[in-house]
Structures are given as structure tokens and as C-alpha cells.
Write a protein that binds this DNA or RNA. Structure first.
Lengths: 124, 124
DNA sequence: CGGTATCCTCGAAGATACTG
DNA sequence: CAGTATCTTCGAGGATACCG
């Protein structure tokens, strides 16, 4: 059955959504999740590599967002536990991989706007 | 120049973004904007028609979100002012139309998840 | 290195009532 | 019909310090 977002609610994992777009936006929306996913789309990154790619995010927020992405099944967290220094790697799951075309479209649309009126401001 | 979201900031309309995905998400993100846009993708709707398509949103929130979409240039507000009853129609602008493939992809991705584990809950 | 713990701010969104 | 006006709540995200 194809859901069509007309005057009905959809229940998924204990949450109620008014539209299938809301489901996707719940998973990739917010200030940071699409950015994290975009950086992971080209491969595995360690926690600190992610941090360096996103200089403005705080550690706490990055950590929280990663946990949510992990819980929603789009990001995989692999911990290589030997003695410290600890090594943790993040990557997209198979489900996360299915988001890549979407992430690229989102980025491309924003890119078009930026080309028209945007400006690169800083390099760190 | 193609922007790549690596350690630089992009300035657009007085806001700073860490990534081109952030630009798009700023415009279509949040709890309601993608739902509104999805409903408008098939044509013009009056304020009350939008309300009825989205029974859980409050008037205030719908009104605020529509204003932001209008300000960001993706929604067009046309007021037919005669004497009351007032008639206002909302539709996508040309820029808004370029979001349609994206909105459909967002909806389709959520739909896939819902088919796997979701459940339609109510009919109003 | 890869996080937590605490505390805090601020804006998105809701409830309800009212209006041109 | 198509909103505004007020007031309130709630949670995302930030600042800073500390931990295994």
C-alpha cells in the first residue's frame, strides 16, 4: 500500500507522523544530521575526523546526533577497543547507504542556491 | 565553483552554513515545512484546504511556516481581496517547483520505511 | 582519544482566544 | 475565511568542565 499523506497518521517505532516526508525528516532533519551523513557518504570516519570536518559543532551535540543516527539504523559505530587511545569509526549502514542519492540531491539543491547568491566566508 | 562542505562556511542571505545540505534543510526542514510543500506540489491550495490536509498542525504554526516558505521564495501567496469572505491561495513558485523531485524522494524514502514497519493509525 | 556530566539558552511549536 | 495575539511548554543545541 502506498501512503499518501492525506488526512491520516502513520505510526512507526512508537512515533506518530502526519506524512511520509515527516518520517525521513525526523531521521535526517535537525541542524546537524544531514551534515554528518553527508560527510560519511564517502566512507568511514573516526570521531575526531568528523569533528575536524565540522568545526562549529560541539562535542556533546556531535555525540548526541551520532547516537540518534545509530539508533535509527543509518549509522554504524565500530569500536576498536584495545588500551587507550580509543579508536571508534563511524560509517553508513546499508539503510544509510540508501540515503546517499537523497543526500546528494539535498546538497545539490543547496549548492545551486549558494552559487546564485552565496559566498564562502572562512577556511576554518 | 562547486562547494564541498569541507571545513569552510558559506554565507547566504545573512546566515552562515557549514554545508550546502544545511542550506536546503534550513528551507525545507523543521516539523512542518516539508509536509506543506508536499501538499502544494500537486497544485494550488487555499489556507483552509491546507489545514484540513494537516489536521494536527495549529493555525498559528501553519501561518508562521507559510510565511517563512514565502520569504525563502519557494511558496507564493495570492490574495483575492474582495469583501470578506477572504480568499487566499498558496502555490509553489518556480524555485519551489525545483524542489518537487526532492520532496518526492524524501517521501518515497519514508514510505519504504513505513511499508516495512509502519501502520496507518487514524483517518482524521 | 572519544567521549560524559551539568547547566543553560533560545527558538520552535502548541493552546487558546480573538479579529478584519 | 484567513488569519493574529498572548502566553506557555518543551527540547534541541550550546558552553564548559571533566573522565576512562
Amino acid at each position: 500500500m502506498k501512503l499518501n499523506c492525506k488526512s491520516q497518521m502513520i505510526s512507526l517505532n512508537g512515533k506518530l507522523y502526519p506524512c511520509t516526508t515527516s518520517i525521513t525528516m525526523d531521521i535526517i532533519g535537525g541542524k546537524w544530521k544531514s551534515v554528518i551523513l553527508y560527510h560519511l557518504k564517502d566512507g568511514t570516519l573516526r570521531y575526531n575526523e568528523l569533528r575536524k570536518s565540522m568545526p562549529v559543532v560541539t562535542e556533546r551535540t556531535l555525540s548526541l546526533q551520532l547516537k540518534q543516527l545509530e539508533k535509527d539504523g543509518v549509522v554504524y559505530r565500530k569500536e576498536y577497543s584495545g588500551k587507550p587511545p580509543l579508536r571508534v569509526e563511524y560509517s553508513l549502514t546499508d539503510l544509510g547507504q540508501t540515503l546517499v542519492p537523497l543526500l546528494e540531491m539535498i546538497s545539490a539543491w543547496g549548492d545551486t542556491l549558494a552559487e546564485a547568491g552565496g559566498e564562502v566566508v572562512s577556511n576554518r
